[in-house]
Amino acid sequence: MLETDFDGPSQSAALLKKIKRSLFRRVEHAMSRFARPVKVLSGRLRYLSPLPRRFTGAYASLEAATAAAARGGKLVGYNHGEVAPVSFEEMCRVAPWDYPILFWLARLTKQSGGLLDAGGHMGTKFRAFAGLLEVPKSFQWVIYELPEIAEAGRKRAARDGIAQLTFIDNLSRAPRLPVFLASGLMQYLDRPLSDLLLELPRLPPHLLLNKVAFRRDGRPVTTLERIGRAHVPYQMRNEASFVQDLESLGYEQVDRWSIPSLSHVIDTHPELGASESAGFYFRLIHNV
């Protein structure tokens, strides 16, 4: 028998596998070249779709997003009485991402006399946590909100007979409270958090921040969220800058938790990828 370097069926199978791998890599590379353009096109077509969109547009700043909404003749921002009741009952229920806040609040309420609930809507977290926290009657729960939301909150609390809730729409009226709670505020806050904190009579020793939206690639973007008839600028921030902003005031990060279920893709700009949501506990270690 004539001897050769060819090993029959086994070598043929190996060669076939090699060819398949090469073809697969080429197809995969070709598909990757078209994946982003396809995503971009599918996203932009959502502008023409009759299907409702939660998030629309991608803008370099909050001001640009606000201007875009105004040009479209939409109801812009959160400061409208008709926006206040949207999803109120749902927000008054405890969600899975509330439990880290409850963990820290259970410890902090025992050693403090109250908290400032910034962006606390009409007292949704007070209502949600009432049955899970031992909050003494003397504990001050002060909510800082936009004027229209604060007024709606006062009326709702009076109707429900909740005397423990206080509403303010001006930080100059904020008492000196040790705990600062902001659950879902940062997406809508029109300035760095440090600016807001510096308007208080003193820096709160404890910050509990929840549902903070970030971009995974670090590049901030602002979109427009549909809430009822209103379109509200929604910011996805850079996490490193966010943390550094608070560290510059003398805060240290004690805890951080991820909230995967609150990751969002902008309907009209899916190529930007999903946002990331997180919560934090910061403690003041020194005043700058």
Rank of each mutant, 00 (worst) to 15 (best):
E225Y: 00
S172Q: 15
G228R: 01
G43Y: 03
P204C: 11
L284C: 13
F129P: 01
P37E: 10
R216V: 09
E3L: 11
E90N: 12
A128C: 06
A84D: 08
E28T: 10
R256C: 13
R191S: 15
P175H: 04
M1W: 08
R21D: 09
E199N: 05
N287M: 07
A150D: 02
L185E: 12
L246A: 09
K211I: 14
A128G: 06
I101K: 00
L185W: 09
F34T: 12
E252T: 12
G113D: 13
Y47A: 00
R216Y: 00
G218E: 00
L62Y: 09
R26Q: 09
I227W: 14
K20W: 08
R283G: 00
D255N: 09
F103A: 05
R93D: 11
H80T: 12
G131V: 01
L2K: 12
S258W: 04
I227L: 15
L116K: 11
Q11D: 04
A70Y: 05
L197E: 04
S61L: 03
S248Q: 10
F282S: 07
P136T: 13
L108P: 10
A60F: 01
S172I: 11
V288K: 13
P201I: 03
R154T: 05
L41D: 03
R226Y: 03
H121V: 01
E145N: 13
K137G: 06
P100S: 12
M186E: 12
M1G: 13
R173D: 14
P204M: 10
V135W: 02
V76H: 01
N79A: 03
T166V: 10
P9R: 04
L181S: 08
P52I: 08
A64H: 06
E90K: 13
R154W: 01
R25L: 10
P204Q: 07
Y234A: 11
G273A: 01
L181Q: 06
V27C: 06
C92K: 02
I101F: 00
W97F: 15
E247Q: 15
Y281D: 01
A106G: 11
D195M: 05
V254S: 08
V83P: 04
V135P: 01
S248Y: 04
L15C: 07
S112A: 12
L132V: 08
L15N: 11
L165M: 06
L146I: 08
A150L: 02
L189G: 09
N210F: 02
G279I: 00
A14H: 04
L185Q: 13
N79R: 03
D267C: 00
M91L: 15
L193F: 10
N210T: 02
G184I: 00
A35I: 03
R202D: 14
L203I: 09
P136F: 14
L197P: 04
V265Q: 10
P136H: 14
G119M: 02
G72L: 13
S112M: 06
K18Y: 05
L41M: 14
Y281F: 15
P85N: 13
S258P: 00
I101A: 14
V221F: 07
F103P: 02
R237C: 05
H80D: 11
V179P: 03
A13P: 01
I285P: 00
L207Y: 03
I101W: 01
